[in-house]
């Protein structure tokens, strides 16, 4: 993944989470991961198009998703219902959109496709061995892994 894409994603993840969760957000060490990826239980995906092709995946455990959705709604959600799912989807959307805006300012043309959310145990997302950048975020509600796979249109 191009070096220029990394910071916009890291920064917007940090900024949006800090704004909507109002807690202490810590970023872990970035690393690369290949092959199919086991998912922690809840995964929100935003697709990217334009000069590039790719996707951003927000991966977290169910309990983390519930806690984050509860915090964002200002009420305690008991189960991962439609509202909770919509909330996590929106978080994914906001982070990706803000990153894309920064990339626009740097002269890269990216478009977003509407987000989707998947839940379940022992999920695995197979992606033909596409390499992804992992941005681990510690939110105070639990860990969220942002998994960014972008490649240039050749």
């Amino acid at each position: 993944m191009r070096v220029e894409y990394i910071n916009p994603f890291v920064e917007s993840a940090f900024n949006v989470m800090k704004e909507v969760l109002q807690g202490d957000i810590k970023r872990g060490e970035l690393y690369l991961k290949a092959t199919s990826m086991p998912v922690m239980g809840v995964a929100a995906i935003v697709g990217l198009a334009g000069d590039v092709e790719g996707r951003v995946l927000f991966d977290m455990e169910k309990v983390t998703a519930l806690r984050i959705a509860s915090a964002m709604n200002g009420e305690e959600l008991k189960s991962l219902d439609d509202l909770a799912k919509a909330t996590i989807t929106e978080l994914a959307n906001m982070i990706t959109a803000q990153a894309v805006t920064k990339l626009h300012e740097l002269g890269f043309r990216f478009d977003l496709t509407p987000p989707a959310i998947f839940t379940g145990d022992n999920m695995e997302i197979s992606n033909q061995n596409v390499e992804a950048l992992i941005v681990p975020m510690e939110t105070g509600h639990g860990k969220v892994e942002i998994n960014v796979a972008i490649r240039e249109r050749a």
Binding site: N73, D82, L83, A86, T87, T89, N93
Partner: peptide
């Protein structure tokens, strides 16, 4: 709004 969360907000 298609997002339940945003609509509720």
């Amino acid at each position: 709004d298609d997002s339940m969360f945003v609509a509720k907000q």
